[in-house]
């Protein structure tokens, strides 16, 4: 029993570390929520101690009559006025935080569309929109405004270490701002149950130095470099992949699935769940539903040998 308790405690504590830890805020918005949490926790501890202390005192003390007026005053002030003031104060504090993190301003605007079960990411730049997927890069210290929506069901956008979360609702646009304060690769996830592969709907939020971010965005805006007569791209076209996926700079302009223009520059495959390696890429194509159940992309088990190798090589060259 003791071992079971220790295991359960360690398992719970494991959730308090790492890149999903909202109790070690890496962003301004997460910090404001964390501060509110610690204040509420401390207040709750004080109130709990007072109540238990009073109960212990009442249990041990010798019973004696109290004046009605004093008892009435104690109940009204301690049981009605104080709780109302505390809860109203916490409500206003929480609402001010919410107002700040949803206010419609930011040096950079990123639109994120929740799909089943991946993230369409569009950077609004003066030169036009830059589309990518399943990975969000942010400049350190700058407030980025996210405009969130969903394609078919409700999702929720959450990067615990940076801030959030915020619902993504079909037909509506919600806003959320993130101001990263620490460099790093932070985990993002869908926080609203949205169907079969909900738990596999993740993304990386990579915080970069502002200069590096600008260079990355310029690179991301460029079309893909596809060599004339590329064997892998020929397979890509023959199998009809371009009907769903776009590769800017080619004839593949499918709007259904993730944009693959700079696919290999991302760290993860399948919306933040597998390392971007040739082996995983090959499995993703042939055993798609083994790797991520219920997704719309069909598996291509018949694609083997030289054709599969060529396609994987081509996709891994899209940096």
């Amino acid at each position: 029993m003791r071992a079971l308790g220790a295991t359960a405690t360690l398992t719970l504590l494991a959730g308090c570390s790492g890149r999903h830890n909202w109790l070690a805020a890496a962003g301004e918005e997460a910090q404001s929520v964390e501060t509110l949490f610690w204040v509420v926790l401390a207040g709750a501890a004080v109130i709990w101690s007072l109540v238990i202390g009073a109960a212990t005192y009442a249990h041990r003390a010798e019973a004696k009559p109290h004046r009605e007026r004093e008892a009435r005053r104690f109940i009204i002030w301690g049981g009605v006025v104080l709780p109302v003031l505390v809860v109203c104060g916490l409500l206003v504090w929480g609402l001010l935080i919410l107002r700040h993190i949803t206010s419609d301003d930011g040096a950079l605007t990123v639109r994120v569309d929740g799909e089943r079960w991946w993230w369409r990411v569009i950077y609004d730049t003066p030169e036009g929109p830059v589309t990518t997927a399943n990975e969000i890069r942010l400049p350190l210290g700058e407030r980025t405004l996210f405009k969130l929506t969903a394609d078919d069901v409700i999702h929720s956008f959450w990067v615990p270490a940076l801030g959030g979360k915020m619902d993504m609702i079909p037909g509506r646009e919600t806003t959320l701002a993130l101001t990263p304060r620490k460099l790093g690769n932070w985990g993002g996830l869908c926080a609203e149950f949205c169907g079969g592969a909900h738990a596999l709907m993740r993304f990386d939020a990579v915080v970069m130095e502002p200069g590096a971010f600008v260079r990355w965005l310029e690179q991301e805006a460029r079309p893909a470099q596809v060599a004339e007569g590329d064997r892998g791209f020929a397979v890509f076209e023959e199998e009809g992949c371009g009907a769903c996926h776009a590769i800017r700079g080619t004839e593949a302009q499918g709007p259904v699935g993730p944009d693959l223009t700079h696919l290999a520059s991302r760290d993860k495959l399948g919306a933040g769940i597998y390392a971007m390696t040739p082996d995983n890429m090959a499995r993703w194509i042939t055993d798609t539903h083994e790797m991520k159940p219920d997704i719309d992309m069909p598996a291509y088990p018949g694609l083997q040998g030289e054709r599969l190798d060529a396609l994987v090589s081509f996709l891994m060259s899209l940096e």
Binding site: V80, C88, L91, V92, L95, L96, R99, T102
Partner: peptide, 20 residues
């Protein structure tokens, strides 16, 4: 009466603070 007045406050406060 106390409960209802507090509940009304809890409707008014978000409207006043958020305003969106």
């Amino acid at each position: 009466c106390v409960l209802s007045a507090v509940a009304i406050l809890f409707t008014v406060i978000p409207g006043m603070v958020l305003g969106e």
